[in-house]
Nucleic acid binder design. Structure first.
Length: 422
RNA sequence: GGAGCGAUGGCUGAGUUGGUCUAAGGCGCACGAUUGGAAAUCGUGUUCAGGCUAAUACCCUGACGAGAGUUCGAAUCUCUCUCGCUCCGCCA
């Protein structure tokens, strides 16, 4: 959510930002008109309330002095009805203003390249080199099924499409990846969190999944809970409605969770393999920082995420998302993309974003610069560190051998107690 | 699922025969005094949001878990909901 005062003061900034995002235009002038009416009406209501408050105080004094207060009470009765009617109108306007504010995306940072889509993302750097295979590499779903470590058919039977059953060494490899990621990050000053996999509506609103993207999440029937689409939601909401102390910042968390996404609108895309699942594992990194530190933190967070790919010796690259590809809540995002032989290209495996105060304003996460100072909004950041399912796929493909076996990456051997999966 | 109790500021904790209550006291914190310096002590101050505004000044409005109601007036009375605790039941 953006600062309404900032929009009032500089509507052009918002108009320009929306143009850069190439999204459907938000009608800024219509918004400003409603907001103007809201403020006028609010002033009117407050004035009437001030009258009622002072007269009510008079009534108390007169009643004590045994004077007649019936006339005043009658006058206040009708004033009360007036106030009630105006407040109903005011609430409606407030709801309109809120609905608008909750659906405006964040303003991209000035360093974000302008563009219309992911084709305009800018490559920043690469790590490792795609392996030159002496044989024709197979996709991970073929290798996985042949080794009987991935079972899509039975997942389809017991649940449905876009689910997968991991078996034997596949399940173990998945577990090894999670443990390795957590050990790396928790060993570098990220406090480990094991969050709930369901959250309430306020949490989903706090990080920006609601109200605009309700169809992307799974709601739990009979409750007001949602399955988390990412651990970002519970971990960023950990400090919702809190005022932190400056000395506590930056706060750095890492956490593993399963993630659930409806993948509405992606029918037909990535239908084979582990790339696009309704349920997938991920280790997430989250930071809360002072505003002036957030862009340095974004660089660091991205490096921290990259480290596990380097550890696994997986070829990857880092791209800066263009304004057209930037997510709703983010001001700036770096994607980490891993080399996927079956796709013949780099595939997103992590998304590292600075949300500035966009989520903090929604979730009311603040801090005091010095004891007694006025609370200010923190900046929030997060990044995958990294997606586990896609890592599993990348390992299977990049570490495959001519005979269809998979060599276990060096750093995972201590977790696996095996050299290869065959 | 059943019964009972509770939710107040950064924290703790009064206030529930409705009326100068944003709300005592304490802790914490800030500033000052004291001190060679510190501790201790003393004094003063210290909620947040919105509106107005050049203003983080003044003034006005709102907020005592959330929402609705009664009333001239609600932390206080009524209803609904959420969360927490205790006991019972069930259960990995």
């Amino acid at each position: 959510m953006l600062d309404i005062k900032r929009i009032r003061k500089n509507p052009q900034e918002l108009i320009d930002a929306m143009a850069k995002r190439r999204g459907k235009g938000v009608d800024v002038s219509a918004f400003l008109e409603i907001e103007e009416r809201r403020r006028k009406l609010m002033a009117e209501v407050e004035e009437k309330k001030a009258t009622r408050n002072s007269v009510s105080a008079d009534i108390a004094i007169k009643a004590k002095a045994k004077e007649d207060t019936e006339a005043l009470k009658a006058a206040m009765r009708s004033l009360g009805e007036e106030i009630k009617a105006l407040e109903t109108e005011l609430n409606a306007l407030q709801a309109e203003v809120d609905a608008f504010l909750y659906r405006i995306p964040n303003i991209p940072h000035e360093s974000v390249p302008e563009g219309s889509s992911d084709e305009d993302n800018v490559e920043l750097r690469r790590g490792g080199t795609p392996r030159a295979f002496a044989f024709t590499p197979k996709p991970h779903w073929e290798l996985g099924e042949a080794l009987d470590i991935l079972d899509f058919a039975r997942a389809g039977k017991i649940t449905g499409s876009r689910f997968c059953v991991l078996k034997g060494a596949g399940a173990k490899l998945n577990r090894a990846i999670i443990s390795y990621f957590l050990d790396v990050h928790a060993g570098r000053d990220y406090h480990e969190i094991a969050p709930p996999y369901m959250v309430n509506r306020a949490s989903m609103t706090g990080t920006g999944q609601l109200p605009k993207f309700a169809e992307d999440s799974f709601a739990v029937s009979g409750t007001d809970y949602f399955l988390i689409p990412t651990a970002e939601v519970p971990i960023t909401n950990l400090h919702r409605d809190e005022i932190l102390q400056a000395a506590e910042l930056p706060i750095r968390y890492c956490g593993y969770s399963a993630n659930f996404r409806s993948e509405a609108g992606s029918a037909g895309r990535d239908t084979r393999g582990l790339i696009r699942m309704h349920q997938f594992d991920k280790v997430e990194l989250v930071q809360y920082t002072k505003p002036e530190d957030s862009y340095a933190a974004l660089e660091q967070l991205t490096r921290d995420a990259e480290q596990v790919l380097q550890g696994l010796c997986l070829p990857y690259r880092v791209v800066t998302l263009s304004t057209g590809d930037l997510g709703f809540s983010a001001a700036k995002t770096y994607d980490l993309e891993v080399w996927m032989p079956s796709y013949g290209r780099y595939v997103e495996i992590s998304s590292c974003s600075n949300f500035e105060d966009f989520q903090a304003r929604r979730a009311q996460i603040r801090f005091r610069r010095t004891p007694g100072a006025k609370p200010e909004l923190v900046h929030t950041l997060n990044g995958s560190g990294v997606a586990v399912g896609r890592t599993l796929a990348a390992i299977i493909e990049n570490y495959q051998n001519a005979d269809g076996s998979i060599t276990v990456p060096e750093v995972l051997k201590p977790y696996m107690n095996m050299e290869r999966i065959q």
